[in-house]
Nucleic acid binder design. Sequence first.
DNA 1: GTGAAAGCGCTAACAC
DNA 2: GTGTTAGCGCTTTCAC
Lengths: 346, 346
Amino acid sequence: MSKSTINHVAQLAGVSIKTVSRVVNNEPNVHPRTRAKVEQAIEKLNYVPNQSARNLASHHAQMIGLVYEDPSIYQLPSAGYVLRLQEGTLRACRASHFELLIHPCNYHNPTVGEELKAVIQQVRPAGLVIAAPLSNMPKIVRAIAETGTPYVRLSPGSRSAKDFYLATNDREVSAEMTQHLVTLGHRRIAFITGHPDHRAVSLRFEGYKDGLAQSGIKFRPELVEAGDNSFLSGEESGYRLLQGKTPPTAIFAANDDMAAGVIRAADRLKIRIPDELSVAGCDDSALAQQVYPALTTIRQPISKMAEQAALALIDKSRNRQSAESSETRIIPSALKIRDSTGPAPG
Amino acid sequence: MSKSTINHVAQLAGVSIKTVSRVVNNEPNVHPRTRAKVEQAIEKLNYVPNQSARNLASHHAQMIGLVYEDPSIYQLPSAGYVLRLQEGTLRACRASHFELLIHPCNYHNPTVGEELKAVIQQVRPAGLVIAAPLSNMPKIVRAIAETGTPYVRLSPGSRSAKDFYLATNDREVSAEMTQHLVTLGHRRIAFITGHPDHRAVSLRFEGYKDGLAQSGIKFRPELVEAGDNSFLSGEESGYRLLQGKTPPTAIFAANDDMAAGVIRAADRLKIRIPDELSVAGCDDSALAQQVYPALTTIRQPISKMAEQAALALIDKSRNRQSAESSETRIIPSALKIRDSTGPAPG
DNA sequence: GTGAAAGCGCTAACAC
DNA sequence: GTGTTAGCGCTTTCAC
């Protein structure tokens, strides 16, 4: 492995190491001819700057840290979420020659704050992307803030944060989905709520009510069932709703797993989808496409949010001034209309 | 953020920085009393060693790199695989205060070798874990080997590698699954093969044949269908098999997606599982538990393999001599008996 | 535009 | 057991 250093390059190019440093870092004040010479030398020697040396001298690593709740406790459903986070962050990193450090953690671990601080102090990443739900947990955010490392919070739904964060329009898009069902002729539209701890999920319920109101349809409490985000709870809610006296013609669940449960319930009850019942979910998880019929759902821009967060951090570490550390950016979610929704029967 | 250095600690403890370094690195030859003093000082100053400085001086980072094929091109099915890889590697890292760098790459990218070398040269991780299928691609392995960085290959199935690698007993466990079906009374056991490029998957076919042979059952080519690892190909193979003149009583598919396809086909044909047909898959993907009835399958020790790989690398970076760089370790897979298999009908 | 010198905070190699 | 002295390969600061 070639282990040429900045000194070798400087020697070959006949300049000082500072000049090499300038061209490597794309700094101004280098004569084009000099730059060309240096670039040639770099090419010839196959020079790659040593990150550790760079980090030591510049006080931070060319690295972005991604912090999220460890999915193993959630089981596999959130696999897609984590992968999308990683995908977006990686896209940003790749473009800028940064590397990605992943750090899942358990919120319930009492020393998680110390742990995070230690990691940050050890590695000194240029910035941290904090994913929901950790991004809404004061303990976590405070610990990270205390280190002085720049960070961006990813909080779908939330809109109250004071520092730099990215969110999506969960509430608005849920209203949009509701209106979509109304447009298809549905009037009795049920909703299955999710786990109360999950902030974004409860915003979806608000969005559902907004959508009804905007369409001039009265909200009926009897068309609301409480789920807990699981497939099973969706299935049970489905039975209750569909076996009631005046069953809905459409069911909107606060996540895909529950919507899939509804599909199973309908299947068992010999109710055809979408002919007799429309079903909509939320998340666009892997399940949405595996289920039959493929699920109409809402796709959150997880990957894009993560990408923008990382990009902002990378930017900040370059133009050290930028900052605007209390910006807020909303990246809209999108309806994914598939086969589980259709015109209302009759 | 406290930014105390080794010097501060040395001063407070009244020793030289070298002694501090020794206790931090758990090196021998430090008097217990001295050690205690130093540890107190560390505690009081909240000292955390600066990784960059350490890396620079010691020529490698306290970091493990995980290299795998970028799943976005595979779509979400391999999400579980990637997450298990990460989980295992993280477990090893966490225990040793190493950090994890993830680096998915596209095998078909012509410059992937250069890219990997650049990353390695930049970050200088203590070692690299290379996951299948990249671990079987000479281009990748060669590029990494050229950098001189220690690496471990994860190659389920493969057993030919000359350097340090971990594998599982894909072939044997597939034979075991076949025998399990025989034990349940099945005699006409069909097999659906997977994508020919996927090495481990083809070993499963060999295992199936072994299992038949070991049970004294004649191998029948008409009971073999060629799939391509997709749900759809499994469904189609299922129809062909189940609508033949003498349909099988059990179908063993080379992966879970295809097995799920078979379940769907059986459902459409009103064939009850497991009463009339047993179905077995392979991988224990998330799908296996979402499908109804829950799928009997084979669980590969992906996470454990990744963990052991990382552990070996970490070990090597500590006791720089160890090496044994051409060891081979087999970690067995396990049968996961669920609800899709049962006694043969009649 | 360019360069010289002084570190960044640690480990390595050798004293003692 | 413990300390001294050099670096590791860069960035920074400031001079020219």
